[in-house]
Design a binder for these strands. Sequence first.
DNA 1: ATGTATACTATACATTTGTTTAGTTGTCAA
DNA 2: TTGACAACTAAACAAATGTATAGTATACAT
Lengths: 221, 221
Amino acid sequence: MELTPRQKEIFEFIKGFIKERGFPPSVREIGERFRIYPRAAFDHLRALERKGYLKRKGSMSRGLKILVFQGYESRGSSQRAGPHGEHLKKEGRLLSREVPVLGRVAAGKPTLAVEHVEGTIPLPIEWLKGKEVFLLKVKGDSMSPYILPEDYVIVRSQPAAENGDVVVTLVGEEATVKRFFRKGGKVELRPDNEHWETLQIEEGSGEIQILGKVIGVFRKC
Amino acid sequence: MELTPRQKEIFEFIKGFIKERGFPPSVREIGERFRIYPRAAFDHLRALERKGYLKRKGSMSRGLKILVFQGYESRGSSQRAGPHGEHLKKEGRLLSREVPVLGRVAAGKPTLAVEHVEGTIPLPIEWLKGKEVFLLKVKGDSMSPYILPEDYVIVRSQPAAENGDVVVTLVGEEATVKRFFRKGGKVELRPDNEHWETLQIEEGSGEIQILGKVIGVFRKC
DNA sequence: ATGTATACTATACATTTGTTTAGTTGTCAA
DNA sequence: TTGACAACTAAACAAATGTATAGTATACAT
């Protein structure tokens, strides 16, 4: 159920009010803000409740609870409802998922051939929605100073990339993190650190394999 | 200012109430919970406000705003075995904890007086063991390229630092991330980015306040 | 001994606030 | 054209709610 522009306006005001002051606005405060009568504001609250954006608790003053925070749920999307590695909050909402940290990445295998899983780290589930993600502990300083040795990179499994993306690729036996560029028929893997050399490979030669795109960095000092 | 056991009990109830229902309790609801008269509950609210734990907004119904989220002084023990924000694995082992993301940090208060909690992010509990930790979303590029704008820094609450530590300090009204050095009687706050200037302050002048040490960085690309 | 702080009872008052009743106006689809 | 919905006005009611007045009892420090 979508909101009308007016309802959205009012919903945004309520969210902002709570964020700023720590408690929801009263019916009259909403009315004052939009120069409408309490009854009109009240009607809007009922509409917002009917559409599932908030809940009104009985007839309590300021008895509002925001239910929808960003957009909606990705309805019917690929919520990886795996049986393992998920954490439940008391209410039952998913908040984090155990993401595997891969040591070495096996050659040949598509993406997640789990030769060496060094452990797992819980990550916020919002950052993983609908994605197949793994972590990699970075060894070299080829992407310094953007990514430093010992950093964990959060990698989204995907077999292709766009110009400028930071990718994890399998060159020979080793997994490396580089910046990806395609120029004409050639693929370039550029390090951010100038002390390292750019790799140039013919496209489609099969010499490299893109494992995924770096969508985050995790540094534990 | 420490809370009495009774005040702590009531403060915990208020925090739990907000977390569960989305809005603060009324004076009478507090009274009913503890079987005391509205006036007694009201007195407790005034005590909690006087001690800086919450703020009452005028005479508005449920006009409460929590200011202090994590325990009091971390004198001695620290492990906040709070009932909220923790995730349990199916076997019952703790793996992650919801860590608050602070927007602005209030001046004056010891360490953890919080103006705006923008949300929470689950972090691996092993990284937080025995520490009092919060997150801060970085705004400027003064620590670039080590820390970039929009990065989250993981901050361990502590009132002092050692040379070379990256710290979060309160200079005037604003919280800034800089590298800390002490030389003779002067404190230096150096940015990694040369385009920014080093701040020099007399030690013990009270002009700056160390909020904590950066123990991690979180980048969502 | 006196003052201050905590923690409460009991009643009362004045708003604040959610909600009701009773309508109007405009849009848009069946 | 009829009906549903959105978006409102205007006034009123009853309940919820913050707060004041006026006290009691206990603990602790000066």
